[in-house]
């Protein structure tokens, strides 16, 4: 079991619904976010390319944030999801420094917070909030080890990339190009 997500950059229109859905679902404090949309513009008119990416924690297989955490608050659970136990976190900020994707933030209550792949929803058999609301259905989530899962099927016939592979973190977010 290895959770992962595929994001179709060709279909995403950058509406930010996933961002709002996440903020609502996870009670993210105002001014913060666990997922966000990047617009990448390359070239200039008329030879211009735009890529839209819905980004969040990559739930890296080789996660530097878990390695550098002095208390074990950052840890990996079944399915490869990287989690933070709030009442073990001392808020030292080491994991924030260690993340090449700036996916973590310091919650106003002190602990560090980030995307959990909506773990509490997965437990109930539901999909993540962002996948659920995406109007263009450009987000695909599921078990990478299962060839029939939504994410595996999405990755099958498409080219994809991961972000900053040179950071060596083995991210589990795949951007369909």
């Amino acid at each position: 079991m290895r959770y992962g997500m595929a994001i179709d950059t060709a279909k995403c229109v950058g509406c930010s619904d996933c961002v709002v859905a996440c903020q609502t679902e996870n009670n993210v404090p105002i001014g913060y976010c666990r997922d966000w949309i990047v617009e990448n513009v390359n070239g200039s008119y008329p030879n211009v390319e735009i890529e839209l990416r819905s980004e969040r924690c990559n739930h890296c297989e080789n996660s530097p944030c878990v390695r550098c955490c002095p208390t074990g608050a950052s840890h990996i659970i079944d399915g490869g999801i990287v989690m933070v136990t709030h009442n073990e976190c001392i808020g030292c900020g080491a994991c924030i420094q260690s993340c090449p994707y700036d996916a973590r933030y310091s919650h106003p209550d002190g602990y560090v917070d980030k995307c959990t792949f909506c773990h509490h929803r997965l437990e109930k058999g539901q999909n993540t909030a962002c996948v659920e609301v995406c109007p263009t259905r450009c987000l695909h989530f599921g078990d990478l080890d299962d060839p029939y899962s939504d994410v595996s099927k999405a990755l099958k016939n498409r080219t994809w990339k991961v972000l900053a592979p040179e950071a060596g973190t083995k991210p589990q977010l795949f951007f369909l190009t």
């Binding site: 950058g14 930010s16 961002v19 001014g31 913060y32 976010c33 997922d35 966000w36 949309i37 990047v38 617009e39 990448n40 513009v41 390359n42 070239g43 200039s44 839209l52 900020g93 924030i96 420094q97 700036d102 933030y105 310091s106």
Partner: peptide, 21 residues
């Protein structure tokens, strides 16, 4: 030109635009 911006808006204290935690 190469440009990258957060169109969903993202201005997390101490993290954007530069990490300063």
């Amino acid at each position: 030109m190469k440009e990258e911006l957060f169109i969903s808006g993202r201005d997390i204290p101490n993290i954007d635009p530069f990490l300063n935690i």
